[in-house]
């Protein structure tokens, strides 16, 4: 049963993978809507962003950490904001102003001929995308190392 610790490490990495994938979805959605001038709300598409926070809802994992801490580290008050992975708390809309472009022939242009375009900067989205994919990769590496450690632990006594 000692290997359960490594499963909780695995869990932590998985929460991060999920969060980064979600972030990637939102970024992709932003990029896809870079020219969307019409949404259900009657205004252009607003850029969306995800918010991350430390996860507090994995009881099994936390219990394991606390038990290990009590046993080996001798801590009576175990840490409150520690090892629990990450989760997506919210998707927020970017409140920065829309881009404006003079294009009188456009169906969504106002009486002055100005079209409002989404407040998305493709470069920013690309940078965020790179950041998300790098984070994803580092978590994959962490998973691989956890896996190797677990495999090694299974070899005890052989």
């Amino acid at each position: 049963m000692k290997n359960m610790d490594l499963f909780t490490s695995l869990n932590t990495s998985v929460t991060a993978l999920r969060a980064q994938r979600f972030r990637m979805n939102v970024i992709a959605n932003n990029l896809a809507n870079v020219h969307t001038t019409r949404t259900e709300k009657g205004e252009p598409y607003r850029r969306k962003e995800v918010l991350f926070a430390t996860n507090e809802s994995i009881p099994l994992f936390q219990d394991n950490v606390n038990a290990a801490l009590r046993k080996y580290a001798g801590l009576t008050n175990t840490f409150s904001n520690a090892a629990r992975g990450v989760r997506v708390t919210d998707i927020v809309e970017d409140q920065r102003p829309f881009r404006e472009l003079y294009n009188p022939g456009h169906p969504d242009a106002n009486e002055k001929g100005i079209v409002r375009l989404p407040n998305i900067d493709p470069i920013v989205e690309m940078v965020n995308m790179m950041s998300a994919s790098r984070s994803y990769e580092s978590n994959i590496t962490a998973i691989n190392i956890t896996k190797r450690m677990a495999e090694k632990a299974l070899d005890i006594g052989s």
């Binding site: 610790d5 490490s9 990495s13 991060a16 980064q20 090892a83 984070s135 450690m149």
Partner: peptide, 12 residues
Amino acid sequence: HQLIVNNIANGD
């Protein structure tokens, strides 16, 4: 290991 993995998971 748990702590480090958690640090990496919370990199953002």
